[in-house]
Structure formats: C-alpha cells, structure tokens
Design a binder for these strands. Sequence first.
DNA 1: CTTAGCACTCTAATATCCCGAGTGCTAAAT
DNA 2: ATTTAGCACTCGGGATATTAGAGTGCTAAG
Lengths: 349, 349
Amino acid sequence: MNIEKNKEERKLRILASIIREYITTAVPVSSRSVAAAMGSSLSSATVRNIMAELEESGYIEQPHTSAGRRPTDKGYRQFVNLMARRLEMEKEKAIILRDQFEERIRSIKDIIERTTSLISRELKHTGLVMWPTMDGVYLKHIELVRIKAKTVLAVLVTMTNAVKNYIFMVEKDIEKTQLKKISNFLSSNFEDSKLSAISERLKVKAPGSGNSQVTKLASSALEIIDKIIEIDIENDVFMEGMNWFAMEPEFRDPKVSKHVLNLISDRKIFGRLMQKELPYRGVNVYIGSENESEILKDCSVITSGYDIHGETVGRFGVVGPTRMDYESILRTIGCLSDVISKKLVELSK
Amino acid sequence: MNIEKNKEERKLRILASIIREYITTAVPVSSRSVAAAMGSSLSSATVRNIMAELEESGYIEQPHTSAGRRPTDKGYRQFVNLMARRLEMEKEKAIILRDQFEERIRSIKDIIERTTSLISRELKHTGLVMWPTMDGVYLKHIELVRIKAKTVLAVLVTMTNAVKNYIFMVEKDIEKTQLKKISNFLSSNFEDSKLSAISERLKVKAPGSGNSQVTKLASSALEIIDKIIEIDIENDVFMEGMNWFAMEPEFRDPKVSKHVLNLISDRKIFGRLMQKELPYRGVNVYIGSENESEILKDCSVITSGYDIHGETVGRFGVVGPTRMDYESILRTIGCLSDVISKKLVELSK
DNA sequence: CTTAGCACTCTAATATCCCGAGTGCTAAAT
DNA sequence: ATTTAGCACTCGGGATATTAGAGTGCTAAG
C-alpha cells in the first residue's frame, strides 16, 4: 500500500520533471535527460517504462515514434493541480513586486498599467487587466452633461480615481439646468456609495409621492443610474506585452502566429472570460483545450481576482502558449492579487 | 523633344504596371507579364530593355539574377508622386463611405472607432486614428475633483463629446469647495472655448488686481488649465486591424512577423509620428525607409488630417507593408478626411 | 523491479539534381 | 534608331536521396 503510493508519487515527480524541462527547452524530453535531472537515482530504462505509463494515462505524448515526450494539456493540468497548494512567493520577490507600486500611483489606471507592465516584464508573457465593474465600485463624483435632446453623457469618478463615461438616451428630454440639479442631487446624497446601492436606495425614494420635486428628481436619477449599470457590461480589458508571443519558438510556425495576431486583436474574448468568473477572487487556470474559445486552444490563461474593500470587482492575468512556467506565474499572480487589492484600498483612502 | 517625353512617360507607365502587378501578386514581375499587361503593344524584349533602365535608376530591383523585378522604395515613391494629383474617389464609393457614419454616432469616440474599423475592413490594413489634441478643441464642460492634498483630477468634455481626464499636482492644496468654485467659474465663463483660448484669456484676467476674489480664482484656474495643456502631449492613438499583417505573404518570414508584433505593440511610435505633422491637413505618405523609425523600414504609413471647424486637430491613417495599394488607399483616406471632419462639426452641433 | 544492451524507427539536416522562369545580349527586322 | 526574335546562360527552389543520431521498445540478465 505504502509502496503503491510511493510509486505513484515517483511517477508524478517524473511528470513534473518532464514539464519543467519542456517549459525551458520547448523540445520533446528524452528519458535520458529525465534520468539525469532526477539525480541519476534512476536509469533511463526505468524512466522509459514510467514514461510509457504516463503516456498511457494521457499526461504526455510523442510527436512521433522515436522522439521524446512532451506534456499534453492533461499533463499540465495534473501538474498544476499538484502544486496548487504550495505557491507562496519568496519574501524578497514579494517585496520587489510591492516596490513596483510605490511611486506615482494616483488612479486605478496607473495600477492597471503598472500591473500589465509588470506581468509583461517579469513573466515575459502578455498581461491582462480587466477594469473593475462599475456597479461594485464606490463613487466619488458623478456629473451629467446634456449632449443633445434626450441624450445624456454621464461622467463617473470612482473612489479609485477611475473616470468612466457613458452616453445614453433617456425617455424624455432633460433641460440643462434640470440635469445640473440631478447631478447635484446625486452628488450630495449618494457620494461614496456604490452604483448598485444608489439604484436600490433610489428605488425606495422614487415612487414614494412625498415632495413631488424630490420624487421627480429621484425617478429621473434612477433612470439614469440604471442606464449606466445596463451599459457597463462591455468591460474593457487592458493588455500589454503581446510581443512576447513573438519570442516563443512556437511562433515560428506561421499558422500559429496568424492565430496569435487574431487573438490579440480581439480583447473582447478576455473581457468575457474574466467577466464570467467574476464573483470569484481565487486563481483560475485554463490550459489549452480547456478554454472555451477555440482560438485559445494552444494558449493558457491564468487569472486572479482583485478586491476593493474586500469585494472582488475585477480580474487580471496572463496569456501565453500552453508551454508556460505555471509555477512562477501562479506564485506571482497570487502575490500580485494581494498587492493590487491593497493598493486599491489605499487609493480610495 | 516630344519623343523624349513620350519615352519617359512610357517608362513610367511600365513602372506603374510593375508596381500594380507586384502589389497584387507579391511575386517579382517578369518582362513578359508587363508586356502582356501593356496590351501587347510592346514585346517582352523591349520591356526588358526598359526594365534594365528602370533598375539603373533605382526604381526596381532584382532579388537575384534571373528573377523578375520588384519595386524599390524609390520606385513606390515615384509612383505615388506621379499619381498624387488625380485621386478623386468615385462618387458611389464616397457615398458608401459616408453611409458608414450615419448611424449611432454620439461622440468622437464612435467616429474614431468607426474610422479604424472602416479602414481595416475596406483597405485590409491596420487603421490608426489619433485623438484630437485637446488644446485645439472646444470645451463643453469642465469638472475638477479633489483627489487628495495638492492633487486634482480634471475631467474635460469636449464639444465632440470626448471625455478626457488628467490627474496632476498643484502648488498649494485647494479645498473641495474652492475647487467647485473654480469649476463653476470656468464652466460659466469659458464654456465653448478652446483650451488655449481659455489660457490666454485667463492670463489677462489673473494678474489684474481687480476684484481680489475673481483674480484669485482666475490665477488658480490658469494654473490648472496650463497643467492640462502641458500634460496633453501623450496623444493616444487608436488602432484596429493589426491582424491584417498576418494575411500578407511577407508575414511568412518569422523575422518580419516578429518585427510586426513589436511594432503594433508600440502605439507611441504612431502617436509621435502623427503629432509631428500635425498642423498640416493634407495627406502624407512614408514609404519604407522614409520612415524615421527603423522598425517601420518595411512598412508604409499613409496619414491625413481631420478638422473640427476648419482647424486641423488630429490625424489618422493606415499602416501596412510597403507593398500596399497606394492608389486605393490614397483615394479612400482623402475622402475619409472630409467625411470625418464633416461629422465632427455635426457632432459639435 | 531495475537495468544494460541492442535492434529498430523516424526526423531533420545535408547533398544532389534538374526544371523552367527569367534574363542579357546579339543580330536581324522594321 | 528602335524594336524584336532567338538563344545561351543563370539561378532559385522543388523533388528526391542519403545519412547521422537521438530516442524508443523490448528482451534478457542482474
């Protein structure tokens, strides 16, 4: 029984070894090099037997007979699952990460840009950050501007100093002065609230036929706030470091490179992907074919959430070829999640 | 003398023929196919002689002996110069272009997105649009928000419904209420003015020690406006259709494709490029090595300006491989410039 | 269960060949 | 004085052949 377990464990250690080597070399791994990597405690022949079993289980594959093995998506998955528990970042590294966010952070935009840039530089893959959903975020300021008849421009400033704007139609035309009143009404009564909370509270206020003036104001305001919430499904994604794809040897294949270009020119894919997993704060890993999108079948996407005041309002992550360094990425992403969330709280005072 | 001229003209007609064929096939052009294209009025032998001359002049080159000729940058340049005068768009095409801007245009953002998308779809190259410089643009609304001590967030809404925001430091801390006053002061006195004009007019008002209250307000406002103008050098560029690069046969070469990825992940290049040529409304063409940036040496960039109220405030254009269809691009870009400018005026009522 | 040994397989790099598209030149034709 | 037909020559690149060696699977011994 104990022996059984040891056997299984050794098998997985070998899988890990194969993956680690393949990640750095991008070349199918031979039994010999695995044996060497395992400290020569095993002969290549033994390793060969085990590798045959691993292939049987679908964790690795041969591009062709008489070539080494490379990990399959399933193999990567196994690997990721196994190590998922122990992914603390070394103290020093964590401090280096933190330091990157020390200077000149004045708005969430700065944080977002800093994050993608960090991911790009440190992890050598494309970094992604989703803007926080507006409805989960506290407002600092709201301003309404009349564009033309029945058309309103809303400018929101969040506690994190993000500026977002929305143009939308309203039922009946609102005068410039009236709009100013609504702006003021919202600003004075609902500053420092969340969009969703404002909507809730307005719903209570609006239909109650107390002071007709206030009621009217509230119902106009409600219409506008709900419009904003409705529009805000787009969820913009900020990307940086697409050029790392070019460095990968996989990129030599023109078919692949074509794919990649199509991929990175369509940020919506990532917007949808991250939106979907949103209430969740933890780390997600999608490996190759695990991705819903066909276009991502040779890529892996690793994402994590970030909080503002304990509420998960956005996600960020990394895209790259399936052959990526899951270990260091998972470590970094996990750590970054904390750093960003902390910074965001600081930002909103 | 007349004969001389005919000779020269024929030479250039052949150059044009070579270029047109090369643009569509991407394969060096042989004397035979040129002869055929010229309606068999010339034999391939004659064409060969002329091609030798064209090569002598540096307009075309052979990749190697016993191959056809392909245009050099100089050749493309000559071609572009020659046809530059007669580039009217056909009426029908122009109308089709115009129609694309009919629906749901509510802000300059819509126009910018529509433009890049149009360029991408119609011309099958990457489309670029530079946001208009703020200082040349009329303001509809200005809002100042206190971020923290000595830090101000300015949100500007232009006549074209663009929302831009700037975070900056000011000399001494300004109270929230005071900031509100400055906002109102600016909004009520300077709405519908240009940023640069506001600055000018404030300069007059500020030092004049009339009403101390107003003077103080004006000088604070001046500081802020000047800060905004100062910051606004970044000049964001909107891009779409980078994936067209992937379709080009040139892209087969991994070196080239690497270049391209680096290129498109750096929009600043185009920001600087367009910024530089800014006061100019007309069309510019940079062919291959004519580009300042080394990274663009295998690309051509064609740009044109757009106006708001007769003042050229931004530029837009196309990037692609040197082997691009200059004729149809120049036609389209020229026409688009008018369409956009017209729409922008409509937008700002 | 492990390992040494060996036959076998298949890729990728290199070499060789050769077709044919395209040229440049020359000499005849206009 | 051009233009053109004719022809020899060049060279890239596709097709094919060859080979080296990296890696495997299997067997039999440790």
